[in-house]
Write a protein that binds this DNA or RNA. Structure first.
Lengths: 340, 340
DNA sequence: CTGAAAGCGCTTACAG
DNA sequence: CTGAAAGCGCTTACAG
């Protein structure tokens, strides 16, 4: 076989490697005749520049790294979708890694990506990440970094997020306006900023509407899955009969809640209203359909990628780049689970 | 900043680049003393081999390409999960691309990956791919290729699949054994091998059990989504009242079917039994829970990756590699939607 | 308009 | 045990 190189083309055409290279890159200081001949032969031989050599010379890989907690998750797979689609359009490829919510893995992956010399890194933090040295390493290494969704306030870099506090407030307020008198919250893990913020929004809404905050009806999801929603709903049903509204950290948890109450014959929303978060497709098709907060995953991925490419470009030109935080708006989606 | 290179370490230590390189790669012909000094300094300077240069020298990128129809799909995101996890363990990174069911995009992406000089390509074909020249190009280019799930019989390479025909047969047979007398099939698109095979399995089961095959109750899904399941169910309900069993190409379609019958008050499984395909998590939590065929996505991804790495290894050593087709077994999962 | 030459940062066969 | 040298395949500043 043997891969086709510039040398081969030059040899066959009896011209220099330099000229071949220039012709293929459409430099203007090459005669049209030579250019045509080179292009023709390159096509015939199916020439493909050796990206290893190009990378080495240009010091860029046209590749970016993406680290997310887990890909098997509607919200993240949507984001990934947006990122690789947009990246491809802009001439970049994406290497994807999953931290599986492990700080240790996350550290290793950062090292892998830096070794690979990706042009930039896009990342959503694992729930268990508390030490941020690996992120600082990325920045110290001069590799552009954009955090999205699961971010840390302690890292100075560009970010794309939603206003989780406001969104948590809106979800809770909606339950209140639906007439709920005692609202439970199935919150996310204690560490991540966004579950903290949603919780704070919940608390603030109760406060603003003069409702008592009761720590005993705030449950903390660890895995943030269906089973936790189901099991906490059971707890509410058996130990807190007076609860008439539940704000679940995520639609998946909310769907677990709905499943439990359906099972025991508690009427939704008449006896208990439920609202989820993220607007997963399934939330719209279960019975009763689940009210939720729409979290624009696709847009988030796209914006994060664009922001990263801007920084990469500035970085390449040696220009200064001012970090930016983009806050995307969310939307309350009213469905049957909270209908009056 | 300035990246740390072998040269810098050599200079600082007053030894040659060669020796530094050898020391870091643990060659035995380097004195322990030198080795220790090199390693110490490399660590202090946070030395990271420049992968561009390494790639160029070794002619391998330790990166593989993965092309799937779409990542926002439980089955594929599971496969992706398995592939990147396993690849990382073996020291490979994964570049992921989505064809979005477009043959044209698929072609472009193959070109991108070949230009990138990935060490191998893993791929599941788009539903609309009929011309296979781009796959032949991969093989002609000597790049190891493994096809999984959506394969083509016309391409000679390694494959990882399930026996869709048998699985389609099992699903249909299960409905028959549940007492269904007239079974409809909501099949997948006409082109992909696996939807053809599931359909053939359906047909064969009817034949073996002396049931009439009726073309008018076989509907073809184009998008293979919830809405199609819902709409075809409506058609069955309004135009084919005697149908008492439905085999849906996929759980998502099956869930649409269940939603429709729930809505109009048709009792499942008493009046109509339903079985899906793939064993998506949601199938187990809807009401009634959906019987299905378990399709081992995680295992499929893992096996495909392993097979690819074997071929890459053989290829590197210049050894011949015999293509292999691995057929994974599926399992009938009985749930409420087909309970007697 | 063309091309010789340097150099990106490694690896490795070879000489000593 | 150490190192000089060649070379992977490009790109580009420079000379002519």
């Amino acid at each position: 076989m043997g891969e086709v190189t510039l040398k081969q083309i030059a040899l066959e055409l009896g011209i220099s490697i330099t000229t071949v290279s220039k012709a293929l890159k459409n430099y203007k200081d090459v005669s049209p005749k030579t250019k045509a001949a080179v292009i023709k032969l390159a096509e015939k031989l199916n020439y493909r520049p050796n990206s290893f050599a190009v990378n080495l010379r240009t010091k860029e890989s046209k590749t970016i790294g993406l680290i997310i907690p887990e890909i098997v998750h509607h919200f993240f797979s949507n984001i990934v979708n947006a990122i690789i689609e947009e990246a491809e359009k802009k001439g970049y490829l994406v290497i994807i890694l999953q931290s599986n919510e492990s700080e240790e893995l996350e550290k290793k992956q950062i090292d892998l990506l830096l070794s690979k010399r990706v042009d930039g890194i896009l990342m959503s933090l694992s729930n268990n990440t508390t030490n941020l040295d690996h992120l600082k390493k990325v920045i110290a290494n001069n590799t552009p970094l954009v955090l999205f969704d699961k971010i840390s306030k302690l890292i100075d870099c560009s970010k794309v997020i939603i206003d989780d506090r406001n969104a948590g407030y809106a979800a809770t307020e909606h339950l209140i306006k639906c007439g709920c008198k005692k609202i439970a919250h199935f919150r996310g893990p204690l560490n991540p900023q966004n579950s903290i913020d949603r919780f704070l929004g919940y608390k603030k809404a109760l406060e603003d509407y003069n409702m008592k905050f009761d720590r005993s009806i705030v449950f903390t999801c660890e895995k943030v899955n269906f089973d936790e929603g189901y099991n906490f709903a059971k707890k509410i049903y058996t130990e807190h009969k007076d609860v008439d509204g539940i704000f679940a950290i995520t639609d998946l948890v909310g769907i677990g809640v709905v499943a439990y109450f359906n099972e025991v014959g508690v009427k939704i929303p008449d006896q208990i209203a439920i609202i989820g978060f993220s607007n997963w497709f399934m939330a719209s098709v279960i019975t009763p359909s689940l009210s939720t907060i729409d979290q624009p995953g696709f847009e988030m991925g796209k914006k994060a990628l664009k922001l990263l490419l801007k920084e990469i470009k500035a970085h390449k030109k040696g220009k200064e780049f001012k970090y930016k935080t983009i806050v995307l708006s969310t939307k309350l989606i009213e469905r049957k689970s909270t209908a009056f």
